[in-house]
Design a binder for these strands. Structure first.
Length: 856
RNA sequence: GGGCAAUUAGCUCAGUUGGUUAGAGCGCUUGAUUCACAUUCAAGAGGUCACAGGUUCGAGUCCUGUAUUGCCCACCA
């Protein structure tokens, strides 16, 4: 009797927490520096410390798969986790917290707000960390880093200082994307364009008419521009036009930027409030007149408009223009308007002074690294995307006027001392005091763009944990393809700049996870799948499998509850396979090297070996879906449906245990909990599955003693069984008698065949006149009732028709001389072989038809 | 305007260098089931691989074009 007693079904809730705890307590998540193989490192993209886990984070499962796989392979494996303070995002969240108390950030002041937001963030961090742990992530939490940790910030400061010394950093007074809500400038990449319908107003400027969507900025006009090729206006170039309402004359200039076909072909040039106009202004040396302030209110305009918001001002100016007859037309126009991607506020282009980084030089190194595959990008098509983007990036505005961020380490001179520099780059106020003298300096209040600091995440974290020497460059960066340009290229740039080498050797990009109909998940659509609800309901492994199988690198994937449920079933199947096997082991059993003593043994051994190769290769090539599918199919289609069933007739405990053990190993990276839960039940294992060796196909092949059985023979058994089952189903037969002629395959496998077919009896009868089992090479029959004759003839006729059609196709192929000449001989031979097989089958069908057809 | 991706069974998706009669899961139909698992088992139906050309002995796969959908970048007075 067996000493094993497993629950009837796998209940994730009973196992996951304790297994995770055991992993962590054993130190399995920490890199094993004694491991024989090279370091393998992944730096986790830090999720927002204030956020909740969503399907995007759940895709870190890919990282866990890689890490678990490499750990089992014997690499010194480090997965370094972290969380992000998420600058502006957190600021917005925390401001809304304050709003609940009826406060704004101005009530607290900059420093108090920063401290409070930081405390809020640190207090929330355990939430997201706990959620990631619940997904089974085998990261080394003892190394957890936070983007505002002192040591991280120090690294960022040092980089800034070095870049400044290298002449890569400068102050620039130019047009920026200003968010009046956030009171900060933003990089182009943070501006999201939304389509809108607005009014296009045609205004009378005396000599010309211009078209604009922003009449409230006419007071900032510095010129009117026309295209130099535009014959309508050539005579006017050099003349003046007059801004209505204020009657201020401006020059008419020619600039190629102007499109003759748009509006009237004449453009009001407003350098201070339009990006393109700013460029035109630079080309023509035009004044930059500001009429919108940082709050989005009109300034430097006639009194009646002063202080109005842009929107109110527009309406008022339009009314005034109409009143004086200068508004000659109004038409709807569809265009895109830039908004801040975090808060949705319309971006006001205006001129402010900001910190910039020159990117051309540093980016050139990134381009070279990507071109030479020093950074391999998966899928490869994103190589081009990143190269195009890098080659076209403008100097990067790295300063923000948010309050929640890393302050730019600069102090400004406030005295008039001509011997002192205008500013000093240092994070140390003492240094500033020494240099300028007390009271003669002020600290910069701008903070870094979060991508400036998070772009340094790989080496900043590794430096902070003391792992830089051992684990940099890292192995793989796995992240969403949407932040390829925002983040991945920045990390490459910073890594090459500061470390002189790439931060990661490969980048794996996953796509978006959509809902069950391939639609983007969104709160407003109500189709958001909460990963934690799913793991609660179906178990963590089920979610992990659902996010792995059927997902293609870089492509959007879809997730549904039904899909997750299906993988819950898989986990249960695995559990029950184990339950079944363990249930029949004798007391005190301990496994020995498997010996293949039956046809089925030889076959399953081969299937396992092939699967080990397939799964290994798939993971190596980042084809995680294929890896998952290979394990799924091995367990369910091969091991459970065939080998286990066959073992009910002829059992080989060692082979069962070997198969189960190997499957557990192969499945572990994707489904770590259920595999470890089963592994724990096997008393002969001294260590946890998480640190067990990954199976080696060659080693297995030499270890398994084969008793001279061919895997092919069992494949024939499977064909025979399938044919008998199909025949039974189509004829509605119940209990079967299988007659055979006494060949070796039937002697060796007859019992197994009958057992797999179920409700079948075996009989030696070389003279049977039953229905021929056509897939059996030596004659065998299903004994049939004469009453079934009509059904049999129908079935045989249908099969004959199918085979004749197939034969015709093969014949026409072989009749084609060019095919026979040009195709590889192996392909042609295969066609010929198949034709022979069909002919044999057809002759059998004819014979049977003759036997069962009514005699004439 | 430029680019990328997708278009394959009712649904969601695979299909790795061109080569068996194109696959999976779910759903559907029929049947089974005290024997590890109904979170099960067996059998089955279901596809002109978006469309039009082309290359090739051979195209879901390569080329050209078209359509639809989604995404990215640029512009949008």
């Amino acid at each position: 009797m067996s000493s094993f007693e497993l629950d009837k079904a796998y209940d994730p809730k009973k196992h996951e927490a304790s297994i995770y705890e055991a992993w962590e307590e054993s130190g399995a998540f920490k890199p094993n520096l004694q491991a024989p193989k090279d370091p393998f490192t992944i730096i986790m993209p830090p999720p927002n410390a204030n956020g909740d886990l969503h399907t995007g984070h759940a895709m870190y499962v890919i990282e866990d798969i890689l890490v678990r796989y490499r750990r089992m392979q014997g690499h010194k494996t480090l997965w370094l986790p972290g969380t992000d303070h998420a600058g502006i995002e957190t600021q917005i969240v925390y401001e809304s917290e304050l709003a609940k108390q009826g406060k704004s950030r101005y009530d607290l002041g900059r420093e108090a707000f920063y401290d409070a937001a930081l405390a809020f963030t640190r207090a929330n961090q355990p939430n997201i960390v706990g959620q990631m742990r619940s997904l089974g992530f085998s990261a080394d939490w003892s190394r957890l880093k936070f983007t505002l940790d002192r040591d991280i910030v120090d690294t960022v400061y040092a980089t800034f200082k070095q870049m400044h010394a290298d002449g890569l950093i400068y102050r620039g007074n130019r047009i920026v994307n200003w968010c009046t809500n956030c009171q900060s400038s933003f990089a182009d990449i943070e501006v999201k364009f939304v389509d809108r319908t607005d009014s296009l107003y045609t205004l009378d400027y005396g000599t010309v008419k211009i078209a604009t969507t922003r009449p409230e900025t006419i007071f900032a006009d510095a010129a009117v521009a026309v295209n130099p090729e535009d014959a309508r206006y050539t005579a006017l170039v050099g003349q003046t036009a007059v801004i209505p309402l204020v009657d201020r004359p401006v020059g008419i200039i020619a600039d190629a930027h102007v499109e003759t076909g748009f509006g009237t072909g004449a453009l009001k040039v407003t350098p201070a409030h339009d990006k393109n106009d700013f460029e035109i202004g630079k080309r023509h040396n035009l004044p930059e007149i500001a009429v919108v302030d940082l709050d989005g209110k009109l300034i430097n305009v006639p009194d009646e408009f002063a202080g109005l918001s842009v929107t109110a001002g527009r309406a008022a100016v339009v009314a005034a223009l109409e009143a004086v007859g200068k508004l000659t037309a109004t038409s709807p126009i569809e265009h895109s308007v830039g908004t801040h991607d975090r808060c949705g506020t319309i971006i006001e282009p205006l001129i402010t002074e900001q910190w910039y980084m020159r990117v051309a030089g540093p980016n050139a190194k990134v381009i070279a690294a990507i071109e030479h595959d020093e950074i391999k990008i998966v899928p490869e098509r994103f190589k081009k995307t990143s190269l195009d983007w890098l080659a076209n990036e403008y100097d990067w505005n790295i300063s923000r006027q948010n309050w929640f961020g890393i302050r730019i380490p600069v102090f400004y001179k406030t005295s008039n001392d001509p011997t002192k520099d205008a500013y000093l780059v240092t994070a140390d106020e003492n240094e500033a005091a020494n240099y300028y003298g007390a009271g003669n300096y002020r600290a910069e209040t701008d903070v870094f763009d979060t991508w400036y600091s998070s772009g340094q995440w790989p080496y900043a974290t590794l430096a902070a944990t003391g792992d830089l020497d051992q684990f940099y460059p890292t192995s793989v960066m796995e992240t969403g393809r949407d932040i390829l340009t925002k983040w991945v290229t920045k990390m490459a740039m910073f890594g090459l700049y500061r470390m002189g080498s790439v931060p990661f050797r490969a980048v794996y990009l996953h796509g978006l996870i959509n809902d069950e109909h391939g639609k983007k998940m969104s709160k407003s659509k109500g189709n958001v799948i909460n990963p934690l609800q799913m793991t609660e309901k179906y178990g963590t492994d089920a979610l992990r499998l659902a996010l792995t199988i059927g997902i293609t690198p870089g492509n959007d994937g879809s997730l549904s509850e039904a899909k997750i449920e299906g993988y819950r079933n898989f986990c249960n199947k695995l559990w029950n396979v184990a339950r079944f096997i363990l249930g029949q082991l004798p007391e005190g059993y301990s496994p020995a090297a498997p010996v293949a003593t039956s046809t089925a043994d030889a076959w399953i051994a081969e299937r396992v070996i092939t699967s080990v190769q397939d799964v290994t290769e798939a993971i190596e090539q980042y084809r995680f879906s294929d890896a998952g599918q290979a394990v799924y199919s091995l367990l369910w289609d091969d091991f459970a449906d065939w080998y286990l069933e066959a073992s009910k007739i002829e059992v080989n405990h060692d082979m069962l245990i070997f198969g189960l053990g190997t499957i557990l190993k192969l499945a572990h990276p994707i489904a770590p909990f259920v595999t470890e839960a089963i592994w724990k039940e096997l008393p002969w294992h001294s260590s946890q599955l998480i640190v067990t060796d990954w199976p080696d196909a060659n080693k297995i092949r030499t270890d398994i003693v084969s008793d001279n059985h061919s895997p092919r023979e069992f494949e024939n058994v499977m064909q025979i069984v399938a044919e008998i089952r199909a025949t039974r189903a189509s004829l509605g037969l119940d209990k079967l008698i299988l007659a055979h002629s006494g060949s070796s395959i039937w002697y060796a496998n007859g019992e197994v065949i009958a057992g797999l077919v179920r409700q079948a009896e075996l009989k030696l009868d070389p003279a049977s006149h039953g229905m021929l089992i056509k897939s059996s090479e030596s004659p065998a029959w299903i004994e049939v009732d004469p009453q079934s004759r009509e059904g049999i003839v129908n079935r045989l006729t249908k099969q004959k028709g199918e085979q004749q059609g197939y034969l015709a196709g093969l014949d026409s192929k072989l009749a084609n001389a060019r095919y026979v000449q040009s195709a590889p001989p192996a392909v042609v031979q295969e066609t010929k072989d198949r034709r022979e097989e069909v002919l044999v089958l057809l002759s059998k069908l004819d014979e049977q038809l003759a036997a069962f057809s009514p005699q004439p």
